[in-house]
Design a protein around this nucleic acid. Structure first.
Lengths: 207, 207
DNA sequence: AATAACTTACTAACCAGTCAGTTATTAAGG
DNA sequence: CCTTAATAACTGACTGGTTAGTAAGTTATT
């Protein structure tokens, strides 16, 4: 097999191993996933895998760190731009759920939270709580400006993201079965209508 | 140790083993949970455990079947009694999440859905889909009666239960950390207000 | 004394992590 | 160019520890 001599080639191998680990951990769970299988999925031997990651635990931590943050920052940025940003986020939701690794990461996190509590806490603080806070701040601003009529912004933020969380989990838990398929576009367009009324939002167009 | 001679005593042992399995599977995941530990938690030896369940897989199936249905039937019954039943359900939600094994079962199911797809499908059909259908039927009736103003009842039902799903998952994933604690009573009373407006519900009192 | 619930020690299989050896790649010398 | 030596990426067989499942033996109960 061709070898990774340059720094970039090595980084590529690392990414391939992380992608392989994502799928294996997702499908089998941390305990049942085999280092041999992860390496094979990335076209390497187990020995080579250990050149890139010190242990199964280290691979797992790297995985969560690598995949969590980019998508979180993306979601956070939507919350910067007020209620219309929230509507944009709702329109992104179906593709976020269908096309990013976020649902798989969420599943892995939920599955392993009890076994790796410190990791769950870290992820909550650096990813989830950031999204919730950004959303809560946005809602608080909109409330002050009289654009929405809500109670506690922090609680409302939780309610607002719930359908995204549930849909992501639904997808990875049940959608291997075609019978369980949900029309995410229809769901989130329904949600947009319902949520705007729920927030008592003064109609701010957006097609 | 005292022995289970009668049929009832054996049933008690079985329940104790299932309760032990619930906690072990929840904490460690299916693959990492040890039959020795499950037996020990129920004050039995591993050998005795195998008198009650043929294999680790069989124990797992029995667990999901045993704990899924009773709570599901309870939730389903709320949906029988129209919008006021929905409000009752929202008021039950905090205790359902705090005091029943439902959140743990949900976590286990999500964690093992990829490894046991046929079990995930079965649970979806016999439990989750039943709740969603009952809720959708209730919403459809209310819509016809002009009590609510909504689009597709089936999609709306999904949106309605989302905060319960998210809260249950949040609890089992993050609430070992006191910092992550959420005031479920406040959350769901906020939700009740917001949801009634979201559904365009004609105010039907209920204190 | 008979029964069957239960225990414990065992085995067969599995897998994370290691390490001695192999080979692709590069570079220098002819 | 071609050969050869040096390097380091990579392989795969091995080991030590772990655990599902078993079965022969033990003991509470009637």
């Amino acid at each position: 097999m061709q070898r990774a001599r340059t720094q970039e080639a090595k980084e590529e191998r690392r990414q391939a191993l992380l992608a392989a680990a994502l799928d294996e951990f997702f499908e089998r769970g941390f305990a049942a996933a085999r280092m041999d299988d992860i390496a094979a999925r990335a076209q390497l031997s187990k020995g080579a895998l250990y050149l890139y990651f010190d242990s199964k635990d280290a691979l797992f931590s790297a995985l969560v760190e690598t995949y969590a943050l980019p998508n979180v920052a993306r979601i956070e940025s939507f919350a910067q731009s007020g209620i219309s940003g929230l509507r944009m986020l709702l329109r992104m939701a179906p593709s976020l759920i269908r096309e990013t690794p976020l649902p798989k990461i969420m599943k892995i996190l939920i599955a392993e939270a009890a076994a790796f509590p410190q990791m769950a806490s870290a992820y909550r603080e650096t990813a989830i709580e950031r999204v919730l806070n950004a959303l809560a701040a946005m809602l608080a601003r909109a409330k002050k400006a009289g654009e929405v009529d809500i109670g506690d912004p922090a609680l409302t933020a939780r309610l607002v993201v719930s359908p995204m969380v549930m849909s992501a989990i639904w997808r990875v838990s049940f959608e291997h079965d075609p019978q369980a398929r949900v029309d995410l576009d229809a769901l989130f367009s329904e949600y947009e209508r319902i949520l705007m009324r729920a927030l008592g939002a003064k109609d701010m167009a957006l097609p």
